[in-house]
Write a protein that binds this DNA or RNA. Structure first.
Lengths: 336, 336
DNA sequence: CTGAAAGCGCTAACAC
DNA sequence: GTGTTAGCGCTTTCAG
């Protein structure tokens, strides 16, 4: 069933059917009705590949979301979609695996949908410019930066929190509450990515306050997985109990970590204070509620779209914005 | 940059380039190398729309995932993808909003990617056959059923738990532990969907055990949202404290509900026992751990793929499988 | 082994 | 208002 069949069945030409399908004005009401009925009757659906192929441009903006389990991203996607629509463009969301190559996915999407621009929700922190050659439209890295890469700053935009600074503030909060022995459970010390950045922020805070980092207080987990976080905290506890606070680099890790503490007889926050980064919704509904640095998801989403649209108008425009994560105080931290 | 440009730059024809790109054997090694280098140099990416358009068939199986925030689905998608790949087909995942029309999305995807079959992860429970006319390939409803609809059983397959029975078992568990006053907080009593089914299961359990349903113990929330669940439980508590157990129809709702109980001074499970359905990972990491009926995600995923593949081989084949959800005991239920 | 050419289904000039 | 037609970028016969 193609547009030809519909045309034939209605006794009109394909262009007329095409006009009806695309709500062009130059069609008599009578013909429009006839075509619409036939389309309905046949449950005809236009072939999108053919449409995209012939279209020379569009008002489409691709949104590549990396990691389908990331609640943080799916929430932002909502705002981004609304914002794009409201500005007269059409969002084209595309989910990929958290291990997948977002640049490649973006490049394919760009050609397929004739995109005007791209928004990446999550991606690598270490692009080099040659691999970005495949992307020929303006793009914004949303919620991450290219701090470990060598990209020319003018060639793209980014909107995110300052991960290192935020981690530093989180740990600083613990220190200001009197904690000195602060453990950290992290996926990796040097993944050239978010884990490394937040770990560096942890070190910064210690340094700033004249506290010596103790490697016995640092445990690596290999991933952001809850099970691994749980086990990481248990390993930490087996090695030493000599700490009063625990810094976790994500909310989900913190939730699993708190459970490990409880299971080992350590009460939060009486025995151990816990602080994290992200500000997920669920963190408000656990006991005790988690103290966490909230990423301004909505603002991040809106800023990203705004910047991208400005890049479309004005080639050469680019911005790198660091938004502030603010502490949402829960009940997981106490003064010592 | 199209296949033509590559061909021209290499001094060969487009068909030769196409052959190289699709790893056909009939190309001299020398030419293959030349083409590959040029492709690399130009960061050329074939246009997928054009490919899909010209392709007459494929080994692609569409997986329409409804609801991007559903952790349960993203976990199943992994297994489904692996299983499809292993069987020699190619999974084409496609995420849509939880409010979106999965049938339409599936139909579009089917034509665009020339799918052999479709797998729906989440969808409406009340299809009528006319709206399914748009789908011309075998499909399996995964994790839900068409119990409120009028679809011909032979025209499709489904794999899911028996929601009503599972709810009945969950509440039955509470009753067997001595509870008689059992409250329920649900999105809706009659949404022709999962909420209604699980609510009916709740009523079944009461009925079977000669307990009269008390509408004062039932609170509707309007959605599965955590905030709404939290507020629902608070409303319930304001109205009555005369219950010893609480049935929540999903894990996330239960987590928020437990928080509401705690915030109102009700300890779980000392004052109120809580049980739910789903078996999310996170439910193992909250305090107290949640007692919940676990949906066999992996088995569901694998069965779905298996059935779909059989439907491809044997048109006319169809199955409707109800898998069993098993209780994962947490610490949220006590005997009274 | 390689090239020429016929479409895949659709849109958008361009005629009438 | 409506029809005709030239591609969009690619794969795939069919010749050579």
């Amino acid at each position: 069933m193609t547009i030809k069949d519909i045309a034939k069945n209605c006794g009109v030409s394909v262009s007329t059917v095409s006009r009806v399908l695309n709500s062009h004005p130059d069609v008599s009401e009578e013909v429009r009705q006839r075509v619409l009925e036939e389309v309905e009757r046949c449950a005809y659906i236009p072939n999108d590949s053919a449409r995209n192929l012939v279209k020379s441009s569009s008002d489409a903006i691709g949104v590549v979301v990396r990691g389908t389990e990331n609640l943080f991203f799916s929430r932002m996607l909502q705002t981004i979609g609304d914002e794009i629509t409201q500005r007269g463009y059409a969002p084209v969301p595309h989910f990929i695996d958290s291990e997948a190559d977002e640049v490649k996915a973006g490049a394919i999407l760009e050609r397929e949908k004739k995109l005007r621009g791209l928004l990446f929700l999550g991606g690598r922190y270490d692009y080099v410019s040659t691999e970005l050659a495949a992307i020929r439209v303006p793009f914004v890295c949303c919620s991450y930066t290219n701090i470990f890469g060598t990209l020319n700053e003018e060639s793209y935009s980014s909107v995110s929190i300052d991960d290192r600074l935020t981690a530093c503030r989180a740990v600083g909060e613990l220190i200001s509450r009197g904690h000195r022995r602060i453990a950290a459970v992290i996926p990796a010390r040097s993944d050239r990515s978010i884990s490394e950045l937040r770990y560096l922020g942890y070190l910064d805070a210690l340094m700033e306050n004249g506290i010596e980092a103790d490697s016995a207080l640092i445990e690596e987990t290999g991933s952001f997985d809850m099970r691994e976080s749980y086990e990481g905290v248990r390993r930490l506890l087996e090695r030493t109990e000599d700490f009063t606070a625990l810094f976790m680099i994500s909310d989900t890790m913190a939730i699993a970590g708190m459970k490990a503490l409880e299971d080992c007889g350590k009460h939060v926050p009486q025995d151990v204070s816990v602080i994290a980064i992200d500000g997920l919704n669920v963190s408000k509904y656990i006991s005790p509620t988690l103290s966490t640095m909230v990423q301004p998801a909505d603002e991040m989403a809106r800023e990203s779209v705004q910047i991208l649209l400005k890049m479309l108008e004005d080639p050469g425009y680019s911005r790198h914005i660091r938004l502030e994560a603010v502490l949402r105080e829960g009940a997981s931290v106490r003064n010592v």
